[in-house]
Deep mutational scan, measured.
Amino acid sequence: SEEELIEKAEKLRKEFEFIWNGIRFIIRENADEIRRFEELLKE
């Protein structure tokens, strides 16, 4: 039914948001290391 689809979509959206926030947190935490690594690659 349509309601089930909406519920599934909402659940997926929440899971995606949770994963995305996790990725963003990891990137933020490691931003300095990532930048340093990029500098090494440029040399």
Rank of each mutant, 00 (worst) to 15 (best):
R24E: 01
I34Q: 02
W20C: 13
D32Q: 09
W20V: 02
R13Q: 11
N30E: 04
E33K: 11
I34E: 03
S1I: 13
I27D: 00
F18V: 07
K14L: 11
E39D: 04
I19M: 04
K42M: 10
E7K: 05
I34Y: 10
F18K: 06
E15G: 11
K8V: 09
F37L: 09
L41H: 01
E7M: 07
I19H: 03
L12Q: 04
E15M: 15
R36V: 03
E38F: 15
E4R: 08
L5S: 04
A9I: 13
E33W: 15
I19S: 01
L12G: 02
S1D: 09
I23H: 03
E3Y: 06
E7Q: 09
F37H: 01
E29A: 14
I26M: 05
F18N: 03
F25R: 09
L5E: 04
F37P: 01
N30T: 12
A31Y: 10
E7F: 07
E33L: 15
E17S: 10
R35T: 02
N21W: 14
F16A: 01
E4W: 11
F37K: 00
N21Y: 13
E29P: 05
E7V: 10
S1E: 08
S1L: 08
L12D: 03
E3K: 10
D32P: 08
I23M: 02
L40A: 02
I23E: 01
R36K: 06
F16M: 05
R35Q: 04
R28A: 07
S1R: 10
I23N: 01
G22T: 14
I23D: 00
N21R: 13
E43C: 14
I23S: 00
K42G: 07
E2Y: 12
I34W: 13
F25G: 01
R24K: 03
N30F: 15
L41W: 13
K14N: 07
I23K: 01
E43W: 13
L41C: 14
A9K: 08
E10G: 09
E33S: 11
E15P: 08
E29M: 14
S1M: 11
K42W: 13
I6L: 12
F25N: 03
L41Q: 01
A9T: 10
R36P: 02
F37Q: 01
I19L: 06
E17A: 11
I27A: 02
L41N: 01
I26P: 00
K42E: 03
D32V: 10
F16Y: 04
L5F: 06
R36Q: 05
E10L: 08
E15S: 12
R35K: 09
E4C: 15
E38V: 14
R24H: 01
I27M: 05
E4T: 08
R13A: 10
I6Y: 07
K42P: 02
K14F: 13
W20M: 01
K42V: 03
R24D: 01
E7A: 11
I26R: 01
N21H: 05
F18G: 01
A9W: 14
W20P: 00
R36F: 11
F18P: 00
I34R: 02
I26T: 00
R13H: 09
R24A: 05
K8Y: 10
R35C: 14
K8H: 10
I23V: 04
D32L: 13
R35D: 06
L40M: 07
E33N: 12
E17K: 09
E2P: 07
G22R: 14
E15R: 14
R36D: 04
E7W: 05
W20A: 00
E2W: 14
E17Q: 12
E4G: 11
K11Y: 06
L41M: 05
K11D: 06
I34P: 01
F37S: 01
D32S: 10
E10H: 12
I19N: 00
E43T: 08
L5V: 07
L40R: 03
K8R: 06
I27E: 00
E39Q: 09
L40N: 02
R28N: 05
L12S: 03
E15W: 15
I26Y: 03
E43L: 11
L5P: 03
E38H: 12
K8D: 07
G22N: 09
E3P: 05
R13S: 05
A9H: 08
K11V: 03
N21A: 13
E7D: 08
L5Y: 07
I26F: 13
F25H: 02
S1V: 09
E15H: 13
E39M: 07
L12R: 03
K11R: 07
S1P: 08
K8L: 13
D32G: 08
N21K: 09
I6G: 03
E10C: 15
N30L: 15
E7T: 11
W20F: 02
I26E: 00
E2H: 09
I27P: 01
R13D: 02
E15A: 15
E7R: 11
R28D: 05
A9P: 05
E4V: 07
E3D: 10
A9Y: 12
D32W: 12
R36T: 03
E43F: 13
I27N: 00
I26V: 02
L5R: 04
F18H: 02
I26N: 00
E3Q: 07
E2F: 12
I19P: 00
R13M: 07
I23T: 00
E17V: 10
F25T: 04
N21Q: 09
L40V: 03
G22S: 13
L40K: 04
L5W: 12
K14E: 03
L12H: 04
E17D: 02
E38S: 12
F25A: 13
F16T: 01
L5D: 05
E3A: 10
N21L: 14
K11F: 11
R28I: 07
I26A: 00
I34T: 03
N21M: 13
E33C: 15
L5K: 07
E33G: 09
F16Q: 01
R36N: 03
K14D: 03
E4Q: 07
G22I: 15
A9V: 10
E33A: 13
E10I: 11
I19V: 06
I6A: 06
F18C: 14
A9R: 05
I27L: 07
F25V: 02
I6F: 08
I34S: 02
K11C: 15
E29Q: 12
I6W: 10
L12A: 03
E3G: 08
E39T: 08
N30A: 14
E4Y: 05
F16G: 01
E4D: 06
E38P: 05
I19W: 06
E43D: 08
G22P: 00
K11A: 08
E15T: 15
D32M: 08
L40F: 08
F37R: 01
E33T: 13
I27F: 10
R24T: 03
D32Y: 11
K14C: 13
K14V: 11
F37G: 02
A31W: 13
E33Q: 12
F18D: 01
E2N: 08
R13C: 14
W20I: 05
K42N: 05
N21F: 15
W20T: 00
I23W: 08
E43A: 11
E17Y: 11
R35L: 07
I26W: 14
A31V: 07
R35I: 06
L5H: 03
L12V: 06
R35P: 02
I26S: 00
K8W: 14
K14W: 14
R24W: 13
L40W: 12
E43N: 12
G22F: 15
E10P: 06
E2S: 13
I6K: 06
E15D: 06
E33F: 15
E17R: 11
E38C: 15
E15Y: 15
F16P: 00
R36I: 09
L41F: 10
K42L: 10
I26K: 00
L12P: 03
K8S: 05
N30K: 08
N21P: 01
N21I: 14
R13I: 11
E38I: 14
E38R: 12
E39V: 06
R35E: 04
E3F: 09
E38N: 06
I23Y: 01
F18Y: 05
K14P: 04
E33R: 12
R24S: 05
E43I: 13
W20G: 00
E43G: 10
R24P: 00
R24M: 07
F37N: 01
G22V: 15
N30Y: 15
I34V: 02
I23P: 00
I26H: 01
L40H: 03
E2V: 12
K8T: 09
E39R: 09
E43Q: 09
L41K: 01
E33I: 15
I26C: 14
N30I: 15
D32K: 10
L5M: 04
K42A: 10
E43S: 09
I23F: 05
E4I: 10
E7P: 08
E3R: 09
E17I: 14
F37M: 05
R28Q: 03
F25C: 12
F25Q: 05
D32E: 06
E2Q: 08
R35G: 03
I27C: 14
R28S: 06
L5I: 07
L41R: 02
E10Y: 06
K8M: 12
L41P: 01
L12W: 13
I34H: 02
F16L: 06
K42D: 06
E3M: 10
E15C: 15
K42R: 10
R24Y: 08
G22W: 15
K11I: 09
E33H: 11
E29H: 10
K14T: 10
I19Q: 00
